[in-house]
């Protein structure tokens, strides 16, 4: 049942990635449409200034953190599953579980820290 719960969140994370990655693609590649709708930035969306401007907005900060969590979980769980198909011993499976869980958590904390730090310290960059 534990595996079912992990898989359930894997699917949910996939759905979250689909939505947020769609949003990312829309912002990055369809800026002319956004501009037409009055939602554009009026400049190059890939420029450092534009990226910095977005990271100052609460909506984007939350979006980045949710996308980071979903992508990390989805990717690491998928990679762990691929490794599990190599007929590993139970001990090695446990080591892999802990490695991915702790590694994923560390990356998430670090990524969240950077996002939140930039949001609250606009002069730091």
């Amino acid at each position: 049942m534990r595996e079912s719960t992990l898989w359930f969140w894997h699917i949910i994370a996939g759905a979250v990635i689909f939505v947020f990655l769609g949003l990312h693609m829309f912002i990055m590649h369809l800026e002319s449409i956004l501009g037409f709708l009055g939602l554009g930035y009026g400049g190059d969306v890939t420029s450092a200034q534009s990226v910095f401007m977005r990271s100052q907005q609460g909506f984007y900060m939350v979006t980045y953190i949710v996308l980071l969590g979903a992508a990390l979980y989805h990717g690491l769980y998928g990679f762990r599953n691929i490794l599990f198909e190599l007929s590993l011993s139970r001990t090695l499976e446990k080591i892999i579980n802990w490695f991915f869980a702790l590694g994923g958590l560390a990356l998430f904390i670090y990524g969240t820290y950077v996002t939140v730090f930039i949001f609250f310290n606009p002069t730091a960059v």
């Binding site: 599953n81 599990f84 198909e85």
Partner: peptide, 13 residues
Amino acid sequence: REEELYSSHGVWR
């Protein structure tokens, strides 16, 4: 049947 079926080497593989 759940325990065997939904184990780490069950349906999800």
